[in-house]
Each structure stands twice: as structure tokens, then as C-alpha cells.
Design a protein around this nucleic acid. Sequence first.
DNA 1: CTCCGAGTTGCACCCCTGGA
DNA 2: TCCAGGGGTGCAACTCGGAG
Length: 490
Amino acid sequence: MKTVNLSLSKSSFIRGLQCHKSLYLYKHQPELRDEISALQQALFQSGTDVGIYAQKLFPGGVAIPFGKGTLSKQLSLTKSEIEKGTNTLYEAAFVHDNVFVKVDILHKGKMGWELYEVKSSTGEKDVYLDDVAIQYYVLKGAGLPVSKAFLVHINNKYVRKGKIDVKKLFEIIDCTKRVKNKQDSVKKELAKQKKMLEGDIPEIDIGKYCSAPYNCDFQGHCWQHIPENSIFDLRGHGVNKFDLYKQGIVHLKDVPADSLNRNQGIQANATLKKKNVIDKDKIKKFIESLWYPLYFLDFETFDCAIPPYDNLRPYQKVPFQYSLDYLEKKGGKIGHYEYLAPPNTDPREEIITRLIKEIPQDACVLAYNMSFEKGVLKQLAEWFPKYKGKIDRIISNIRDLAAPFRSKDYYHYKMNGSFSMKIVLPILVPELSYDDMDIGEGGMASEAYLKMCQSPDSTENEQIRKALLEYCGLDTLGMVRILEKLGKAC
DNA sequence: CTCCGAGTTGCACCCCTGGA
DNA sequence: TCCAGGGGTGCAACTCGGAG
């Protein structure tokens, strides 16, 4: 069997659109790639899940599997299926002009072949159009009569009632015209990329394209010359960091002070002088705005593109766990409630009935970055209107423990501009740390819970449960300790 | 990947002022 | 009397950072 000599694939073309240097390194020095985090891997997985689910839009097709044999085998398999008269193919493989693509769904309609590119996102983006355009280019070039090209994405307005209605779950956008208009530029860009790949490594400096529309895998390589305490450590809006960079300003110490906004100014000043900011009056005011009994609430949630239960929209957050600590009075003993739903049950009503029993009507409720907890509670009120009154009452009593850190009334020079709990807690309360924990962030927590749901009988699950309870408990205990520290600071 | 709140920015709009 | 430009305001659009 003849092997196919490929210079490009669909994904590398998209990569090249973002940055030629990234494509060059990917082709010639892949060992320089950054490690991909477990979380990113999980997101990638959810994308393929959606792709497979979308196949139900055109059931009964034939799949051309990945990884099974060589690329040329996938090509010949595709060819023979088409010749056989198969009218729906999943992951059909084509090559033209040395570019290899796989089409999520290829369906033979009345007017000819239709190509469908499935995205797990909830809306259209420019880069998706390039994605469809390159596929159209290759299919046309390979001699397939393509009549229409579509973009398929998740419709996040869809509410599940009973069995999933695939036609409503997905939104299908006809982008044939726009894709045709792009053909010229696709051809030109391809030629450019190929020429570039044959030459020396292109000299491209860092820029916004390092992280948009996608995070580049070579940031660790290209950003090596950026020192510690650089302008890129500045958080928030304000100065255009790449404008400064182009002016040759890289280190924080070289930034003209008047070009920074308030928060960035505080950050830069604290970092350079290794000095902390503690605005005692403001912190005192914050603490005085709280009252007892004082409850500390933290939710863990999961979300899926394809809603697992009724009355659920795509990507809607489903709480499956919470930790609730409380103090009856100032300096009192910490009380603790917690709940972790058993796998594969709809946990929503159980969670809210427990919470409204455990949180007294007029208690002050603290959350860290409260918009998250408020949002979950609002959602619960929508799902269960019978509890709306009580839920709204809880919501109105929520205060945000992140507020003093967000406003930089309390800022430690090691915070690097961040006010995240994961940064703030180890600095204020070094004896509490996420370091040695099996689950150390929210993303891992939801991943772990979904894993339990996938294999509910696994012997591992007892360990996962323990880790989940430990993690969520640390978040609320951490809040108690942070508040204590704030109190001592003023 | 989505969602949310908060902060920023851009823009339209208003009034005021001063030059012609 | 007209208009351009400065300054304040209020809204919408956007981005960022943090949450999962």
C-alpha cells in the first residue's frame, strides 16, 4: 500500500493560521511542546463526546475509525464506502494538495454531499469558519461533489424534557456561502504555510495570538525570555501589555507608574518592593458588615454539554456536593455539615432541601467569590420554585469573602495580582495547603465525580469520595481561617 | 468549555465655553 | 448666532479573572 506524503492536516492548518512559528515547531520540533494539563485533556474528551453524540443527527452511518492503521487505510476505507453507496459517514478521511482532513459527519443529501463540522461550543466563532473552509477545500479538491457545508454547535437554550431531542440540542448553521468566499484565501494561506515549513524557523515574536483563539503549546518555549516580575504578570485591564512590550518595556520596574490603573499599580508596587498592602479601615468595615451566626458555603458542581437530567440545559451547572461550616458566635466552635451525592442520581433537590434546613433564615452566609454560589442557588430556585422564597433569602444574606482581596485592600506581594482562593489561602494560612491533596481544584473535583458516575461500582470510589469530601471541606475551613486572619490584621 | 460579576473602554449625548 | 472642542455622564459591549 502506498503511503501518503502529507505536509499538513486540518488541525495544523488552523494552528498555522494562528501562528506560523507554532506550526513550524509542531512539525519540526514537537519535543518542545508544553505538557498538556489533565484538565485540558478532559475538555478535549468532552469535545469528542459531543462529536459522537451529533452522529445521531444522521443515524445509521459508517464510522471511519481513528488510529486504526495508517492514514492511507482511512482514505481507502472512506473511498470504498462512498463507492458502495453509503450515504452517511462519520470521520470520513480525505486528502488533497497534501492536506489531510477528517469530516465529523458527511451526509449525502438530494443535491449532493453535505459536510458537517461539529463543535462542542455554544456559538459560532470565526476560527470555526476557517475549519469548515479547509475541509471544503480538500473535499472539493479530492473530487467530491460537495453541495453544502454546515457548522453544528450546541444550543444552550435547549432544555431537556425526557429523552434528548438531538434536533433541538444542536444548532445547524448553513455556512456554504461564507465558506465558498474563503476558498481563495485558504489556497493562498496553504501555499504560504508549505513554503514556510520548508524554510528556516520563522522569526515571530510573542503576541496576543499566543493564546487566542487557542492556547499555543509552545508558550513555554517562546516565552522563555520573559523575566520574573514582568508586565505580563499584571492582572486586569488597563495597559496594553503588548504595546509596552513593543516599546521595549518588559520588566515591571520599567513601567511608567502613571500607565497603570489602581489595582495594577498596587500589584506592581507590592511586587517590586516586596511590601504588602493592608488597608485596615476597609478590612474592618468589611468584617463589620458580617454578622452571626456565620455560615461558610462552598459548592462543587459538574456540567455536561449533553444534559444528563430533565429540566437541564447544556453546560448548566449541577451541584453534587457542598461543604458548610458555621460559627454560632464570634470565636465559637466550628460546626460542619457536608453532603456528597451518590453517583448517577439527580442531586439537585436533595441539596437544596438540606441547605434550607441547615442554614438558619437570617444567618450571614460567606462564600469565596460569591457569584458562583449565588448562581447555583438562583438556578436551584428556578428548578424548584416551591423553595424560591427561602433560597432568595439565603442569597440576599450572602457576602463575598473574596471582596477584600479583589479590591486589594488586602494584598500580599506574592499574590501575583490574583485573588483566587487557591493563591490566597496558602499565603494567609500556610498550614492549610492544597499541595498534598488528590483533588486540588474544582475542575478535578467535577472530573472525579463524573468518573464515579461512569463506573459506580469501582473499588476506587471510596477513595475518590474521601478525596472529594476532604477538598470541599478544606475550602470552607480555609474560609474560616482567612476570616480569622483578616480579623487579626486590623 | 460556560457562566458570572466587575472593571474598562468606546460611544453617543448633553451642556458649557470661547472664538469668529 | 454658529460651531468646534472640552468635560461630564450613562449605557452597551467587551474583556478579564475566577468559579466549576
